[in-house]
Computed example of a mutant assay.
Amino acid sequence: MKKILLLLLVFASTQLFAQKQATIAFEKNLTSPEIFIHLPEFKNINVRDMAISPKNDEIFFTLDAPKNAFRTILTSKKINGKWSEFSIAAFSGNYYDIEPAFSPDGTKLFFASKRPTGKEKTPKKDYDLWFVTKVNGVWKNPIRLPETINTDKNEYYPSLANNGTIYFTAERADAKGKEDIYKSEFVNGNYQTPVSLGTGVNTKTYEYNAYVSPDESFIIFGSYGRKGSLGRGDLYISFNENGIWKEAIHLGKLINSNQIDYCPFVTFDKKYFFYTSEKSTIEPMYEKMSFDTLKEVINEGSNGTSKIYYLSFEKLLKSIQLE
């Protein structure tokens, strides 16, 4: 009897420990994008935008409640080779927080937030850019970027270069379209006046969610309404030649769908490409539909909720050369 009880205790503790592991795997030979983040506790919830640390040992991403009712940043950390269970980031969970991004040296984590500023207690109506640093191993003490960057309109999706230059999306009077992608150089500890990127990137339509490589050799971003667009928003890449962003290239059908595709990210070692999509494989009609099949169709795979996908960055680059 004691042996049975001992076995039951061992099994229970093993199951409990297993439940505390986040399901995170990096498949090397993907031929098409696969869903990266799995949250069994949240069925049909939206997840969007993610960041992986330069050492590939921390992950941050946004959980987005239906109809954007609340947004918060979740995290997992690799400890002794295993990913910890997902939890709310130490600096998040109280206000609308989205779009985490590491500085290339890994010392800062930037994000967009509607949290109140100064002595205000009411959350803002627009998003500002903030960052946190680690204190005794914990990311905390959010600091709002200066007024050079933040305005009374939205600033989104920070992305950092090696030299400290920050790229972001904003609604500004000098924008070429409704929203443009801007950059602000970091000189002598101060952010300079943001500049809208050239027409190789920005157009008279919408541009959004720009990821820039740390060496500023390429930028991947979303745009809506361009000629040849497949849907509600596609992803494009532009290469930097002698300081000029060349005409953007559509990332093709391997990535883009007839729904919105957004939030690009490339790991610091350039092995993997991540993005968010609201694509769906649900068909408009079925000949036979059992209840079990219905559950599978609605709950599994690409079902129209925003999900984070990934594949080899090398595979992505090869795919656009073939199109």
Rank of each mutant, 00 (worst) to 15 (best):
K82F: 14
Y156K: 11
G164R: 12
V138P: 07
S76I: 08
E155S: 12
K78R: 15
T165M: 07
Y127P: 00
D105Q: 10
K134A: 13
K114G: 06
F60I: 05
S84R: 08
I79H: 06
K114H: 07
E147A: 13
T117W: 00
I149C: 03
F60M: 02
P104A: 08
N94I: 04
K82Y: 13
A112H: 04
T169H: 03
A90M: 03
Y95Q: 03
E147Y: 06
A89R: 10
Y157L: 00
I79S: 10
N80C: 00
D128Y: 06
A65E: 13
K78S: 06
K67A: 14
I149H: 00
I59C: 02
Y95E: 08
G118F: 05
E58Q: 15
I166Q: 09
N141M: 06
F60C: 03
Y156T: 00
I79N: 12
N162P: 01
K140S: 13
A170W: 04
Y96R: 12
I88Q: 10
P158K: 03
P116Q: 10
T151N: 10
A89Y: 04
K119D: 14
N94Y: 09
G81L: 13
T62S: 15
D64H: 11
I88D: 07
K82V: 14
D97P: 07
I143W: 00
N154D: 15
L129N: 06
A170K: 05
E155P: 01
G93L: 10
F111I: 04
F168A: 07
Y95C: 03
N80P: 00
N68I: 08
A170T: 01
E99H: 08
I73H: 05
D64I: 11
S76E: 09
Y95L: 01
A112Q: 05
E58H: 05
F110W: 09
V138Q: 08
P142C: 10
K140I: 11
K114M: 14
S92V: 03
D64R: 13
E85M: 08
N80W: 02
R71V: 01
D126K: 11
T133N: 10
D128E: 05
R71P: 00
N141Y: 12
L160E: 02
T117Q: 13
S113P: 11
K114A: 10
L160T: 08
K125N: 15
K108Y: 06
W139P: 02
P116W: 11
A69Q: 13
S76Y: 11
P100R: 09
K140N: 14
V138A: 07
T122I: 14
W130T: 01
P142L: 04
L160A: 04
N68H: 14
K108Q: 14
D105A: 11
K125Y: 01
P123M: 07
E99K: 10
A89T: 06
F111T: 02
D126A: 12
I88F: 07
K119T: 15
T117Y: 09
T107E: 15
K82Q: 14
A170S: 15
I73V: 15
I166N: 08
A65L: 14
T72E: 12
K78I: 04
A89S: 15
P146L: 07
W130P: 04
K134H: 01
K108L: 12
